[in-house]
Design a protein around this nucleic acid. Structure first.
Lengths: 120, 120
DNA sequence: AAAACATATGAACAAACAAACATATGAACT
DNA sequence: AGTTCATATGTTTGTTTGTTCATATGTTTT
């Protein structure tokens, strides 16, 4: 409707097997969680081994409070799980998908280090 | 240093083959781009076919200006490429990685639709 | 060269967000 | 019970980010 063209063909093609809008929204929300340096560092650390909160804080060099807040975000999104042992709480990645996503991201970034030319 | 523990073992383990901090930062920045509904919709649409700006705007039901702004973000991050044909400019995904990331996201979201119980 | 069209860009505003600080919870030990 | 330790939570603040509106650029057509 914006421009005078008829985009019905494209419309049709794209909406063929729509993973309907809600799902794309969920996907964006998922990646949003990965889209923060602090959280990414936490996830990467956890991909190596289970860790307590204060260990994470030390490893990534952030305050305990900040780490706790981010762990909550990660937990709400089911990216990490935890278990208590006395006073300390150990966090771990919740499933292998999470590790896959981290790996793929690293892969992409490493490959993208070469080329940087575009058209137009 | 925050808590009284000695986390040197964890530290060592994690920093074994560090994809050093900068890279994790880049990964986060990459996923940040995928972490927006509008951009995700654009990318998904482009995964089906090359599209002009106004076609995208219509398909995802957003203003041309908003789409243009987001296309710029996508282009700056090398996720899309474009070509001009007369007045109109056609955008496409720039490489297969992009499609892989979208697919993996959709996969994760679809699987995660079941379980939602955790410990603690 | 002017008008029409497709896209890009700049500025402004609001909403979302992460970090810091202070404080609260909850477990273990004396 | 009180203290200490590990973690969580509430609040505030500064920054980032997405959208909108208005306008600019660049292309084609007349």
């Amino acid at each position: 409707m914006s421009c005078g063209h008829d985009h019905s063909k494209e419309f049709e093609l794209i909406n063929k097997d729509i993973p309907d809008d809600d799902i794309l929204c969920d996907v964006a929300d998922l990646y949003k969680v990965f889209g923060d340096t602090t959280r990414m560092k936490i996830l990467y650390a956890l991909s190596k081994t289970e860790l307590s909160v204060c260990a994470i804080a030390e490893v990534i060099n952030m305050q305990q409070s900040a780490v706790s807040h981010q762990l909550k975000v990660l937990k709400n999104n089911n990216l990490v799980a935890n278990r208590r042992e006395g006073k300390t709480i150990y966090y771990r990645l919740s499933d292998s998908h999470v590790y896959q996503i981290i790996s793929q991201g690293i892969e992409h970034v490493l490959e993208g280090e070469h080329d940087h030319e575009e058209d137009i």
